[in-house]
Amino acid sequence: MRAEALKGHLDGLLLAVLEAGPAHGYVVIERLRTASQGAFDLPTGTVYPALHRLEGLGLIASTWSDGDGRRRRTYELTTSGRTALAEQRVTWETFAGAVAAVMGGRQSWNPAS
């Protein structure tokens, strides 16, 4: 799936994969790829700017560490990031239910269900 298709959802997806615990950028990309069964195979040029944006918003924090002869930046959710993820999940469930209702041809949809 192309990165353009994820517009508006990438931040939530990155927060969700960081919910599993701190990770450096490559692991974030791998978690996203694995969890989506390969559908979200995103380039570093898409993921790293989004991680930096999320850090600027205070939703994730990063630390530098040395390992394997190189420095790595490790990202983790902040308390604000956990709150934002919970809010994004509610928004996503409402959106996904509405899209399924329209695309699936269901006669009625109740966002409270």
Rank of each mutant, 00 (worst) to 15 (best):
residue 46 T to G: 08
residue 49 P to H: 13
residue 55 E to W: 05
residue 24 H to L: 04
residue 65 S to M: 14
residue 30 E to G: 03
residue 21 G to I: 08
residue 19 E to V: 00
residue 38 G to M: 05
residue 13 L to G: 03
residue 50 A to K: 15
residue 30 E to L: 04
residue 27 V to C: 04
residue 7 K to D: 11
residue 21 G to Q: 06
residue 46 T to N: 08
residue 67 G to K: 09
residue 41 D to H: 09
residue 31 R to A: 03
residue 8 G to D: 09
residue 55 E to K: 06
residue 14 L to H: 02
residue 26 Y to R: 13
residue 9 H to V: 05
residue 9 H to G: 03
residue 55 E to G: 06
residue 22 P to F: 10
residue 32 L to C: 07
residue 59 L to R: 02
residue 35 A to S: 07
residue 32 L to P: 01
residue 53 R to M: 05
residue 47 V to T: 10
residue 23 A to Y: 02
residue 45 G to Y: 08
residue 34 T to C: 00
residue 47 V to P: 02
residue 57 L to A: 15
residue 15 L to V: 10
residue 60 I to A: 09
residue 19 E to G: 06
residue 35 A to R: 06
residue 32 L to K: 01
residue 45 G to L: 09
residue 26 Y to A: 13
residue 23 A to T: 08
residue 60 I to N: 03
residue 31 R to F: 00
residue 59 L to N: 04
residue 41 D to V: 01
residue 52 H to W: 13
residue 64 W to Q: 15
residue 41 D to K: 03
residue 61 A to N: 08
residue 39 A to S: 08
residue 51 L to M: 10
residue 48 Y to G: 01
residue 60 I to R: 00
residue 46 T to P: 03
residue 44 T to L: 13
residue 63 T to R: 14
residue 41 D to R: 02
residue 21 G to Y: 02
residue 10 L to Q: 11
residue 45 G to D: 12
residue 37 Q to K: 11
residue 11 D to A: 15
residue 55 E to Y: 04
residue 47 V to N: 07
residue 50 A to S: 15
residue 16 A to W: 00
residue 29 I to A: 15
residue 42 L to Y: 02
residue 40 F to R: 03
residue 37 Q to L: 12
residue 60 I to L: 14
residue 42 L to F: 02
residue 35 A to W: 02
residue 14 L to W: 04
residue 51 L to D: 06
residue 29 I to N: 06
residue 23 A to C: 12
residue 68 D to T: 07
residue 16 A to G: 06
residue 44 T to P: 04
residue 65 S to R: 15
residue 40 F to C: 09
residue 16 A to E: 01
residue 33 R to G: 00
residue 58 G to W: 10
residue 39 A to T: 06
residue 26 Y to W: 05
residue 41 D to Q: 12
residue 20 A to H: 13
residue 47 V to I: 15
residue 31 R to S: 03
residue 9 H to F: 11
residue 15 L to C: 11
residue 51 L to G: 02
residue 68 D to S: 14
residue 45 G to I: 10
residue 59 L to I: 05
residue 64 W to S: 15
residue 34 T to H: 01
